[in-house]
Simulated scan of single mutants.
Amino acid sequence: MTGASAAAGAMFIGLDGFRRGWVAVAIDGDERAISFPAEISTALADPFVRAAIDIPIGMTDDGGRACDRLAREALAPHRSRVFTGARRWLWEEFTDPDHANAEAARRGQPRASRQLWHLGRKIMEVDMFVRAHRGLDIREVHPELVFLRLHGAPLPSKKTEQGARVRRDLLVAAGFEAIDDWLTRARRGTGAKPDDVLDACAVALAARDCAGCVPEGEPPRDGHEVAMQIWF
C-alpha cells in the first residue's frame, strides 16, 4: 500500500471496485494508505478490524431490499445513485443480459440495468468471499451516504468538477492529507478513475466510524443468512 504499512494492527479498510480490480484504502490510527489489488482476497488478506465495500452484500431472489429503498430516500432527489435489483440467479444462471432479463420478465421482476449487469462479477466475487469468511466484519457502505453525512446536504454529481472538488475537500478535512497525490500519481496507470479513489476513501471512513445504517437495528437477512444493511 502507498503511504502506510498494510500489516499494521488496527486496520479499517474501504473498497471500491473498478474495471481492473479494487481501490483499497486503509486507515490505521493517523495513517492512511491506498492500493489497487486485482482481487478481493488480496485486498483483505491482512488482518483488519472492519472492512467496508461499495457493493451490494446480501441479495433477495427478486432483487428487492429495504436498505436500497431507504438509501434512495435518503439521497433524494438523487435516488438513481443507488443501484437496485442485484440477484444471485442473474449471474449464476446466465451469461447474457438479454437472456437474464427475459427470465426476469417471466418471473414478473424488474430488468437488470446494463450498469448493474456489468457489476455482476464484482458482486458475486464479494458474495462468495463474505459467505466464506463469516467471522470477519465486512459491511456494505454507500459512499454517497457518507458524503451526505459529512456535507449535511445533497452533493452535486461526482462526475462534475464542482462535485469532485467538494468531495475532495471533505476528505481532506477528514484527514486524507495525501488525497491529491492519490488522485494523480498513485492512481496513474492503474485504470481506476478519480471518483473511484474518492469513493474508496469515503467507504474507509465508514468502516472506521460506522456512524449509522439503513435499516437501523438488527438487519434483515437473505436466504444465505447474509445481512442486508447499508452503513455510512
Rank of each mutant, 00 (worst) to 15 (best):
R139Q: 06
D181W: 13
H133Q: 06
A86G: 02
E177D: 13
H118P: 11
M128Y: 14
E125D: 09
E161I: 15
L171H: 12
R79K: 09
F83M: 00
E125M: 09
R121N: 12
P97I: 02
D181L: 09
R168E: 02
P77V: 08
H99V: 15
W182T: 03
L183G: 03
N101T: 00
R114L: 06
H118I: 12
L75P: 00
Q115F: 14
G120R: 13
A173T: 06
R167L: 02
Q109T: 15
R79H: 04
L116I: 05
F129Y: 01
R167D: 04
H118K: 08
R131A: 02
T95M: 14
H142K: 03
I123Q: 06
P97A: 10
S157Q: 10
V146D: 07
L145F: 00
I138H: 03
W91N: 04
G108W: 12
S113G: 03
L119V: 13
L150C: 05
M128P: 11
R167H: 05
G163D: 06
P77S: 01
D127N: 08
A173P: 13
W117N: 07
G135V: 12
Q109R: 03
A100D: 08
R134G: 07
L183H: 11
A178K: 04
W117Y: 09
V141H: 06
G85I: 05
T95L: 14
H142P: 05
W89D: 01
I123T: 01
R114V: 15
A132H: 02
A86R: 05
E93C: 12
R168T: 15
S113Y: 00
R134F: 02
T84H: 04
A153Y: 12
L170Y: 07
H142A: 02
E177P: 12
R111K: 13
H151R: 03
D127E: 15
L148A: 00
V141N: 01
E144R: 08
H118R: 10
R88I: 10
Q162N: 08
P154Q: 11
V126P: 08
G135P: 09
L171R: 01
D98T: 12
K122V: 14
L150F: 05
G108H: 11
D137W: 14
W117C: 09
R79S: 12
L136R: 10
K159A: 07
Q162A: 07
P97L: 13
H118N: 15
D181G: 09
R168I: 14
G163M: 03
P110W: 05
L155D: 03
R168G: 04
L183N: 08
T160L: 03
D169P: 05
E93I: 15
V82A: 07
V126Q: 03
S80M: 11
A132P: 04
F94H: 04
E140A: 01
F176D: 08
